[in-house]
Design a binder for these strands. Structure first.
Lengths: 178, 178
DNA sequence: GCTGAAATCCTCACCAG
DNA sequence: CTGGTGAGGATTTCAGC
């Protein structure tokens, strides 16, 4: 379970047309992905840089798209969205047409992925109630190219988080509990 | 802590044991879910309140759990995570056992949902490469109760966002575009 | 990337409705 | 009880090094 993280800093294929991410960048990203409200002064003590240096890095990480955005993660049930489901859409000959884009307009659709296998499209949808789900599926069937759907209703969510920076927890440091 | 909260009956089913959310709360939530770096002064101009009032509401929304946290959304490919997949786990007789909790320890696992249907568990996993996927599936098969898996490899992601506040875009207001 | 200073912002007090 | 006003303190942010 604990493997030595080799210091291979060679960049493979950087989407952001910037420079490779070093260990400090990953440390910053890991911290901000868990709590983006932390101050630069606070982060600076953790990464061993000055506050403006951290700020400069974060600014660069935002500009290059490594940090897509900083968002408040909302609690579905508090907003009346008690109903979460994954919908597998069996679509026939969908290019990346307007149909997919139209799905993004609906606030209940949180994710749209084109996948391999027998389905073609996986949707993550969250709404108020089963009735809303029914209405959504009807609209889905009305779209051209939709041959069928398979819906997996979520009974309980045990984990739901964003992309992990992949930092091994700082066992070597152990410096602060903040 | 210092006051007993009187349970108003008009609260429908509030997960956070707080009060219902009004239109201003939703407006704030909608804005912060898209960009949590905006200042309270900025938000106050949009919702028509003073900055401290907005801050007070946000503080309450955090305390009641409506805002679960504020996080930086990272770009997978920039971190070397080019491989996203949904794994349907056919599990036999899993209570909410340690097996599920163990999955959360793995940084490649982003979501774990118990679902209806023939699968039982849906996992969202993101990693470096197909080889890592293979290793992950092996570890999955080693877990007790895992009878089988079906993996849907994501070819392209067209939408990926958090819980939407569900505000209809303010067409009636039209006060400012920020 | 560091230091220091200025502008902004957060945050708390207190007061009004 | 919720929102407004004003001031103190922290933070962001931009110089120059």
């Amino acid at each position: 379970m604990d493997r030595e993280p080799e210091e291979t800093d060679d960049v493979r294929r950087n989407a952001g047309r910037g420079r490779a991410l070093d260990s400090l960048d990953r440390k910053i990203l890991g911290a901000l992905s868990e709590d983006a409200t932390r101050s630069y002064a606070d982060l600076s003590k953790e990464v061993g840089l000055s506050a403006p240096a951290v700020h400069e890095r974060v600014k660069r990480l935002r500009a290059t798209g490594v940090i897509k955005r900083t968002s408040a993660d909302l609690h579905g049930p508090s907003l009346g969205k008690d109903f979460l489901a994954f919908v597998h859409v069996e679509a026939a000959g969908w290019g990346k047409t307007e149909g997919i884009m139209a799905l993004g307009e609906l606030p209940e659709v949180e994710e749209v992925h084109a996948v391999t296998g027998d389905t073609g499209l996986i949707l993550k949808v969250r709404m108020d109630c089963p009735e809303a789900m029914e209405g959504f599926l009807w609209r889905l069937y009305d779209m051209p190219g939709v041959r069928g759907t398979r819906t997996y209703v979520v009974l309980s969510t045990h984990l739901e988080r964003g992309v992990q920076a992949g930092i091994t927890p700082d066992l070597s440091q152990g410096d602060n509990l903040k």
